[in-house]
Amino acid sequence: MKNKGFRVIFCSIVYIFLFLPISVIVVNSFNATTTKPYMSWKGFTLDWYVKLWDNSSLLEAFSNTMIIAIVSTVLATVIGTLGAIGMYRYKFKGKGLIDGLLYIPVVIPEIVLGISLLTIFANVNIPRGMLTLILAHVTFCIPFVIFNVRARLSGYDNSIEEASLDLGANRVRTFFEVTLPILAPGIFGGALLAFTLSIDDVIISYFVYGQTKTYPLKVMESVKSGVSPDVNALSTIILIATILFVVLTQGSLFKKKDRRI
């Protein structure tokens, strides 16, 4: 590890490995080819960025993904935050059971969660679609929110809340003005993780989508015949938006909470 040259070369190779397939996607989004499987280079064009707006099924899939991600993130964050606080503070029967169940979506292979949700939805006749997708996403996002909030709670000083109550604030006001601001970084980190997991999910969605296709499922469908360059164009736009988001939030969020995918 002493040798600087070795360190630079080794890390460069790893970064090339990490960014190689992404550069393929970005370059192919400017590829003028119109024949499947859209791989050989036929010159530079911006056409795919224009054609993208005519591909209504792709845009619909993308908007489904965003709706599901936003709704699931909000639900998982609210339910998870309340749950983390309740499990930290109160004693009740079955606490150990709930605690144990929370680890399941984290460690179990996603495919097992996907097929188990499929069988139960089929058994109770819930039609597969937006509702089942949101239920599934909320389920696998909640534990990540809880673990993040819990990490924040472990250093939490209960006496601050007692002080607030002693000074005449009621429970609701204490919750919103004292508890919530202290937990905010954990809640925000959990929500961000939930959102990322939701927009990228393929495996679990694959078993519960019915007719409501998400963007990853749309990509999956086109993988067999060759992903068309307008999909690459949309992916490039998402990538740039993500990098902008990272750069803009870099100062506040990523200083404290940086161990997130």
Partner: peptide
């Protein structure tokens, strides 16, 4: 972290194209 904010399927497809 940034590469993992692009959809995983499309990145795997990127490898196939490569």
């Amino acid at each position: 972290i940034i590469p993992f904010w692009t959809n995983s399927l499309i990145r795997i497809y990127g490898w196939r194209s490569f």
